[in-house]
């Protein structure tokens, strides 16, 4: 006890220069991020149109938001896109990483190939996949020209499955990064653990599932947050690939925010929508923070 008591005052001054250096960033975070967020939430209760105005209307903007069919479609799309993109990025990313970890030849080459799409922006990715999935020029046309004339693969012009067309492009772009993170995690596992498992005669798949993956927990949590943040802010991919179409079938929340703020000149409605997006992010981040920091304190 007495030891911790003497330690405490020194905590504040430890790494003092580092703390001073981070003051600008702390100020930025407080005033720009927190301040901007508070301002946005505050004005989402007004009927601001083109310019912010202090004319309070209670929760009218939220009522209108949740009554709007386009917002409902957007939320539904986000849920579908979110679940599938989370599951598939993790599964595909981990499988690719596990395969690369088998000490194969040309590992660097494969790693570069898989990671390459990540170097492209979402706009470029979207345009590329818009052409690939176009029924008259892309995959469908190629397969048909090879003789399978009944082949039908036209996701971008079918309202029911258009979100999966976007998902394909997103996975192509993002899985490489997840693979690299996973690979780093796998390389961080001590060789001795593998040796011990082999000595005990545990099959490889069981070693992965019950020993390696639980040990990679911090990597998984970081990956999860990166994927989740990417899901919530998906915007440019949709704009480039479908611009929300056909009709409103591939709308996403971020696009709703932009369209209502700037095209419809209705700031109040856009603020309400972005506040709802913030709520989604909080739902994702709070459990993560609890797991990460709560655990550390207990430990």
């Amino acid at each position: 006890m007495s030891e911790t008591d003497t330690k405490r005052p020194s905590q504040l001054f430890r790494n003092l220069s580092a703390k001073i250096a981070s003051v600008p960033m702390i100020l930025t975070a407080v005033f720009v991020f927190v301040g901007g967020t508070a301002w946005t939430i505050f004005y989402s209760f007004t009927n601001s149109k083109l310019l912010p105005r202090l004319n309070f209307v209670g929760i009218d903007q939220y009522e209108r938001l949740w009554a709007a069919p386009r917002w409902q479609v957007a939320i539904e799309n986000l849920a579908i896109y979110g679940v599938f993109s989370l599951v598939f990025s993790l599964v595909i990313g981990f499988l690719l990483a596990a395969m690369l970890d088998q000490k194969i030849r040309f590992e660097d080459t494969f790693r570069t190939i898989f990671l390459y799409p990540f170097a492209l922006s979402f706009i470029v990715t979207g345009l590329v996949w818009q052409w690939l999935l176009n029924p008259d020029f892309g995959v469908q046309a190629v397969v048909r020209s090879l003789g399978w004339t009944g082949f039908d693969f036209n996701p971008l012009y079918n309202a029911q499955i258009v979100i999966y067309g976007i998902l394909i492009a997103a996975l192509w772009q993002g899985t490489g990064l997840i693979m690299c993170l996973m690979l780093a995690g796998l390389r961080g596992i001590d060789e001795d653990i593998w040796k011990a498992a082999r000595v005990d005669g545990i099959p490889t798949w069981k070693t992965y599932l019950f020993i390696i993956i639980p040990m990679m927990r911090p990597v998984f949590i970081t990956t999860l947050v990166i994927i989740a943040a990417g899901i919530v802010k998906v915007y440019d991919l949709v704009v480039a690939q479908t611009s929300g179409g056909p009709g409103i079938a591939s709308e996403v929340p971020a696009k709703y925010v932009y369209d209502y703020m700037f095209h419809a000149q209705n700031l109040g409605q856009g603020f309400a929508a972005s506040t709802m997006m913030l709520v989604t992010v909080i739902i994702v981040v709070v459990p993560w923070a609890y797991l990460e920091f709560g655990r550390r304190q207990r430990g």
Partner: peptide, 10 residues
């Protein structure tokens, strides 16, 4: 616009 783009495609 939201209504009619939905109407024409759905």
């Amino acid at each position: 616009e939201d209504l009619f783009s939905e109407f024409f495609s759905n």
